[in-house]
Structures are given as C-alpha cells and as structure tokens.
Design a protein around this nucleic acid. Structure first.
Lengths: 198, 198
DNA sequence: CGTCTATTTGAATGTACTCAAAAGCGGTGG
DNA sequence: CCACCGCTTTTGAGTACATTCAAATAGACG
C-alpha cells in the first residue's frame, strides 16, 4: 500500500521502519471519484495530499469565473493549497480528481507534529519544497519568455502522459491559453509533421 | 550590523545568541556597486544572499537576448538562483544590484552544515521556502488571470517603493510586459485620475 | 441511439508587441 | 553653469498572436 510512498521518501532521506510506520499512522487513505474535489476555494485546505494513484488538477477561478489550472499532479506528486494549509485561511484553489484516485492525506496538526518529532521529515519536506519552488519558477519563466506553442511542445515531451490522460481543454488552461488556441497549435503541428513526411 | 537579520530570523524561530553567532560566522559580508552582479547565468551560483541594504533584480535572458525580471528584492529579502545553488549546475539567472548594496552570503557547504547542525535553522529555511513558494504561486496566478494593468496597480499598491527606486523598464519586465506597454498603462492611469478630479 | 461535452473551425476583435522616432532626464566635462 | 551625451520614457503606426463569440463536427457515456 505505502510502497510507492516509501520509495518516494527514500529518494531524499534515509528512514527506519519505525519512523516510516509512525509517518504512515498519521496519514489517512482516501478514495476520490473522478470530478470530486479534495479541497475547494473558499474552504480551508486542511490537508496535504500525496497522490498514490490517479491524477488531480489544482485550479483557480477568477473574478470572471474563468478556470486557470495551476497544477496537474500524477502518481507520486503532492497536492495542496499550501497557503491555506499553513495559514489556516480560506483556499484560493480547488483541487479536483481527473481520474478515480487514491490519496494519502496529512492534516496540519499531524504535519506540525511530524516536523517537531522527526527532524528527517522536516528535512524531507524542505527538499520537497525546494524542488517545488524550482519547478514553479521554471514554469513561470516559460510563461514569460516562451510562446504557447513552445510551452506545449515542451510539456508533451516532458510529460507524454498528459496527452493520454488529460482533456485538451485542461491542458490548454494549464498552458495559460484557451482551448481554441491549443486546438490551432496542434493543427499547425500536425500540418508540419505532414510537411516533413511527404 | 546583523540586527536586521536577527529580527528577520526571530520573526520565524527562537534562537540563542550562540546559535545566531554561529550562523553569522558562516556568512560573508559583501558590498556591491550598482549594476554589478552577485551571480551570473551560466556560472554556478555558489551563494544564497540576504540583502541587508539595497536592492537586486534576478533576471533570465532568453534565446532572443530579451531580459525577463523574475524577482526584485529589497532589504530583508533573500536572493539566489536556487536551482543552481542546490544542484551545483550552471545558473539560469543573473542577479544584479539595482543600487549600491550590502549583502550577507551563505555558501552551499555552510548552508548544508547549518541544516545538519542547527535544526531550528532547517525549520527556518523551510518556513522561508514555504513563504517564497506561496508568493511565487500568487505571482504566477496573477500572470495568467489578470491584465497587465491590474498587475501594475497591485504591485505599486503593495510595494510603493518600487516606483521610487526601480527604473520603469525594469518594473515593466517584472510585470512581464514591454516598457512601451507600461508607459501606456501609466498614461491611461493618469488620465483616469484627471477625469475623477475635475 | 440520443444527449451532453469536447474539439475544431471561422470570423471579427483586442491587447500587447515590434520598430522607429521624438522627448525628457541626469550626469559629466569643458 | 551650461552643453552635450547616453539612457529612459513617451508617442505613433503597423502587426501578430491569442481572444471572444458562434457554429459545426466529433466523441463519450449512459
């Protein structure tokens, strides 16, 4: 059950069976149906979730009721509205399952206790945050310095599973463009493919 | 000398004089002239810098040699190319002083030693990263969900010192637009002001 | 099979961009 | 102290990319 999670953690820190068991005892296993939400904008996000099976999108709904996908997470990723989780304020984001999913959740109290009692887990979460920060920064840089087409190509190259598992309009939103725009980008891509092969 | 830094740290954790002194002994004090760089794209970013006096911009230069300002940091902020700092790979960003500045730098070895020897500093840096991640995420959300004008107004409301201390074309780059576009936004703003007051 | 949603296509629009030039500003040296 | 130079900001004109709105087509699911 927790094998994937254990490997995930041991990629970064060394832990004993006892430590891992203690950590697992703090988790709750939850099953989410496709389209059901794990956290909702406006509510307080009480949990951090490790995605064991499935995938989830984190999105922001703006004042004009447009959805902006901030993150798409697959197996072995974490998902949460971090600001809400750490400050106990209403969340900005909604986190929704894109497939039937299994997640392990850790609530704020347990998270804080973990930080206090197991230093190696504080280390682990710091490393996790570092990686998250760096990826987010690179995503941001991509947005301001590269074209939508470029970002699309990089995305599907880096995460081929995106195209198979994620609806196109969700990918469009993740790229920061409209579904129509993505459809047109793909069309010109396919035309270019044809051009090369003929 | 380290008063501001101590207050900065004690906002998040409690430390003894001895711990703080040990931390300070790991720092190097550096003075940077306006326009000189603290880290350069292509080089390895060996230091994390606490800005004690002055301000610095972190920017990315894309393939078309356009500059994209990723961050602007004032007193009491940190600056680094985190990816380069933690992985020892060439940096993507250049960090340049926008004013004569005084910074305290911490190199990777010292940082790692600090994490190993003083758990409260690992805690501190985790909290710092959390805050950084949340701000970056909010900045990102702003970019994909709000107009350039909106972002500009929020920025100067939130950081009034920007307008006084930072050249307009740098602010434009930070906002993700061209200097011309920002100039036009400001023009319509001023016209709106006039409209209200007459 | 029919309904609902996702994707594609078309046409008109808009926002910010590029390129070019003028105006403004600040610092330096005569 | 003023004239000049370089850099920043403003303004103008034309353009490009993605948007919006609308409609048609395709696909998925019960």
């Amino acid at each position: 059950m927790f094998g994937q999670l254990r490997a995930h953690i041991e990629k970064r820190i060394s832990i004993s069976d006892e430590e891992f068991d203690l950590f697992c005892s703090m988790l709750e296993v939850k099953h989410l149906r496709k389209k059901s939400t794990f956290a909702r904008a406006g509510d307080i996000c009480r949990f951090q979730a490790y995605i064991n099976i499935g995938c989830m999108k984190t999105y922001y709904t703006d004042t004009k009721m447009r959805e902006h996908v901030i993150q798409i997470g697959f197996e072995d990723w974490w998902a949460a509205d971090l600001k809400s989780f750490i400050t106990n304020q209403p969340a900005d984001f909604t986190i929704e399952a894109l497939e039937d999913s299994e997640i392990f959740t850790l609530d704020r109290i347990a998270h804080e206790k973990l930080m206090r009692t197991l230093p190696s887990f504080e280390h682990f979460f710091r490393l996790l945050l570092q990686r998250g920060y760096v990826s987010l920064q690179q995503r941001f840089v991509g947005h301001v310095s590269r074209s939508a087409e470029d970002r699309y190509l990089t995305l599907i190259k880096h995460f081929p599973s995106m195209e198979k598992r994620i609806p196109q309009h969700t990918i469009a939103s993740y790229l920061g463009i409209t579904p129509e725009a993505l459809s047109r980008i793909r069309k010109t891509q396919i035309e270019r493919q044809r051009g090369k092969n003929s």
